[in-house]
Design a binder for these strands. Structure first.
Length: 732
DNA sequence: ACAGCGTTAGTTTTT
DNA sequence: CTAACGCTGT
């Protein structure tokens, strides 16, 4: 026991051994957040204050959940069974499966990932004859998800304008289709589970009495619905009602909240503090990761944000090296510099390449860096591409499996009904969809009512699925997957394709994944063996949707790491290069429009800086090729927020880039640009001509130089905002 | 059914 | 500039 607690610093110890009350732990970057979380669980269990049965630990990512599980297994003498550790989605899914009838879901309900959801919405819009210019599928999807994340059902949407009203109608239609097909999207997992617990009192009581301790990781990333779900489970709606419910132990860092754009509410932290934890707010401010200068710089930067809970990181590791700042002429220049530096660090200081990272605000920036690394023969690894379960061949294979588990899954049906091609064209499918609509059934069921030649082809497909179901009856999961890939014709199709080799390998990988899945499920005693194969298949399909697959295998290769700042959260490196530190790029120009957008960008910068252990490089370029055009840039305002004495400028005051237009030289001295004439000699009030919209007059402008946008009244074609960098406007 | 063309948009991301 | 999407013609 003393072992468990002996290596904690005082605030960590205080957090870990907090009595069973609500607590909010403000855990700075590198302050041992995960350690506190896991040690507390271990402490609670090993001191007999709670049985493993009574603990619920919630994370956002599977990775974090796995890490917690692994650390706990190391801390506790026995592997704790009955411990609920998982993601919000994973845990909600678990409850919905257990109580699918109470939740009014079919037993074999399928999880729709983002791609499935979008496909369903597109199909829905088409069937309803909705103009997808006016209602772009993506926007409808964002709308629906945003509502669900607020806990709002279609019927409850407050729509004061016809546009929103229409979207609410589409939301209602979407709900109906999902219900009929047995599809549950990510947000629905949470909302359904929340509603289930709200409405079903015995069930709610059951879980409220069961969980004595609820621990939440990355609390600053929770959205409203997730917070409501936590409060409900903890029976924490009223003050002082804690005897009835669980102690909520929330760990987070408001300064590292970088997901507001997907609904995260930092406000939840303040709310939590106000509501429960005023007396139990603990700050973890000692940082075990970065050296002093890096922390000082990060602290100075983040102090520019308002509305913080407040926190200052410190270290006893010493000041360390200054932060190096590089200014390049162009993005290529910048790339050459960072790659040179990587080589020097590796060759001269013996630093491992895997301990160096290039971070950037947007993924498009990786191109130049990759190109330079490639041409210099330095191994590198880029994060953030397509993930395993999102690949088309994998989704195809899964669609066959899904259809076998749940014939009502029209999304799966449409994905593979004609893949590989079996002569079922758009016409046939139109007829089929009409029939299905008439008899109010799934496409699969409607197939039987189809007559003529179409009936034969579609019937053949249905028979194929039935054949697959029959033939795999009694087979184990990997055998089933193998059989389906072969008999469905997928394997044959890719064997005949020139570029099919890699896809075939991925399909093999899917079989491996299913083997691994069965093995792990058996090991953890998830009694998959006696649940029967149908459930094994269902569980595997769930796994595939909820765990979209590691980015790529081959961790720890001796390669430089390339990723967006978002993707870097939670990681650390000896040397970090933050590239593209230019106004408009980082902070990103679009962030200026959003509420508190700049503050979120600053938090992003804070996250980026605090990834570095020993060395931090900040670099930017005077000009950058963006969207195929040269764009001239100001250094990021964030550079000015770091005390100059912490910085070491590697470039002397350099001449400005060649061919730089006169207007941008003034921009370089941090002077506000003069009242700009718009590029191309345009000006507000001018008459212009546009290739598509015809003649118009500029009524308003915004932004400057390459980023300028103008509002043009085109008369009959209406009022449009156009980016001058894209729109070819000619004076008329 | 599918290749080839033209049009369009162009942050961040996990589940 | 480039990737992705949708439409058209064979």
């Amino acid at each position: 026991m003393s072992d468990l607690l002996s290596c904690l610093n005082p605030p960590q110890l205080q957090a870990v051994t907090l009595p069973p009350v609500h607590g909010l732990i403000l855990a700075g970057a590198g302050s041992g957040k995960t350690r506190v979380l896991t040690t507390r669980i271990a402490w609670l269990i090993s001191t007999g204050q709670v049985s493993p049965h009574g603990v619920l630990a919630v994370t956002f990512t599977n990775k974090a959940a796995r890490e917690m599980q692994a650390r706990l297994a190391a801390l506790l003498p026995i592997h704790p069974r009955g411990l609920w550790i998982g993601t919000f989605h994973g845990l909600c899914h678990r409850m919905l499966r257990a109580h699918y009838q109470d939740a009014a879901l079919p037993q074999a309900f399928q999880i729709l990932d983002t791609a499935d959801q979008l496909a369903l919405i597109k199909r829905l819009l088409k069937n309803l004859g909705v103009d997808d210019e006016k209602y772009p599928p993506k926007e409808v999807m964002y709308f629906i998800n945003a509502q669900k994340e607020q806990g709002i059902r279609a019927a409850q949407v407050e729509a004061f304008d016809p546009y929103t009203r229409r979207k609410a109608e589409l939301y209602a239609e979407y709900e109906a289709v999902c219900q009929r097909e047995g599809g549950v999207d990510f947000a629905e997992l949470l909302l359904r589970c929340y509603e289930l617990l709200c409405r079903n009192e015995p069930l709610r009581r059951h879980y409220q009495q069961r969980f004595r301790h609820i621990l939440v990781d990355e609390f600053q990333d929770t959205n409203r619905l997730q917070y409501a779900w936590l409060k409900l489970l903890a029976a924490a709606d009223q003050r002082g009602a804690q005897e009835a419910g669980a102690a909520l132990f929330a760990v987070g860092d408001d300064d590292q909240s970088i997901y507001a754009f997907r609904g995260a509410e930092v406000a939840n932290m303040r709310e939590f503090e106000r509501h429960f934890a005023a007396a139990n707010l603990i700050r973890l401010e000692q940082n075990y990761r970065s050296q002093g200068n890096i922390l000082s710089a990060a602290n100075a930067l983040i102090q520019n944000n308002r509305e913080r809970l407040g926190k200052n990181l410190w270290t006893d590791a010493g000041e360390g090296e200054p932060i190096r700042v590089f200014e390049g002429f162009t993005d290529l220049d910048e790339a050459r510099f960072v790659v040179d530096e990587v080589r020097a660090l590796a060759d001269e200081e013996g630093m491992a390449r895997s301990q160096m990272a290039f971070l950037y605000r947007s993924n498009a920036q990786s191109r130049v860096l990759e190109h330079e690394l490639f041409s210099r023969g330095i191994p590198y690894r880029v994060y953030g591409g397509l993930r395993f379960f999102e690949r088309q061949e994998i989704k195809h294979a899964l669609a066959y499996l899904r259809l076998m588990a749940n014939p009502d899954d029209d999304t799966a049906f449409l994905r593979v009904v004609n893949f590989p091609t079996r002569g079922i064209g758009a016409r046939t499918l139109e007829n089929l969809q009409a029939t299905a609509h008439q008899i109010n059934s799934s496409l699969y069921n409607a197939a039987a009512s189809l007559s003529g030649k179409a009936g034969v082809t579609v019937g053949g497909f249905v028979r194929l699925i039935e054949q697959l179901r029959r033939e795999t009856d009694g087979l184990n999961l990997p055998e089933t997957v193998t059989h389906v890939i072969e008999i469905s014709g997928l394997a044959g199709h890719y064997r005949n394709e020139k570029e099919g080799q890699e896809r075939l390998e991925n399909l093999d990988e899917l079989i491996n994944a299913s083997t691994l899945f069965v093995a792990e499920a058996g090991e953890e005693g998830n009694n998959t063996a006696n649940e029967g194969e149908a459930n094994a298949l269902l569980a595997f399909l769930t796994h595939a949707s909820l765990e979209s697959g590691e980015h790529q295998a081959g961790e720890g290769q001796e390669a430089v790491q390339l990723m967006s700042v978002h993707a870097a959260k939670g990681l650390e490196f000896d040397a970090v290069f933050i590239t593209g530190l230019e106004q408009g790029l980082f902070p990103h120009e679009n962030a200026a429009q959003e509420r508190d957008g700049l503050e979120e960008e600053r938090r992003l910068m804070y996250v980026a800086m605090t990834r570095a252990r020993k060395r931090l490089y900040l670099s930017y370029a005077q000009s950058r090729l963006l969207h195929g055009q040269t764009r001239y840039c100001l250094p990021s305002a964030f550079l000015d927020e770091i005390p100059p004495e912490l910085l070491k400028r590697l470039t002397k005051a350099r001449p400005i880039a060649p061919k730089m237009p006169a207007w941008s030289s003034t921009m370089h001295n941090n002077e506000p640009p003069p009242e700009e004439k718009l590029p191309g000699g345009l000006r507000v009030g001018m008459n212009v001509r546009h290739a598509k919209f015809g003649f118009g007059v500029i009524v308003e402008s915004e932004g400057e130089g390459e980023q300028a946008r103008v509002q043009v009244n085109f008369g009959s074609a209406g009022m449009k905002w156009l980016a001058l960098a894209y729109a070819r406007l000619e004076p008329a």
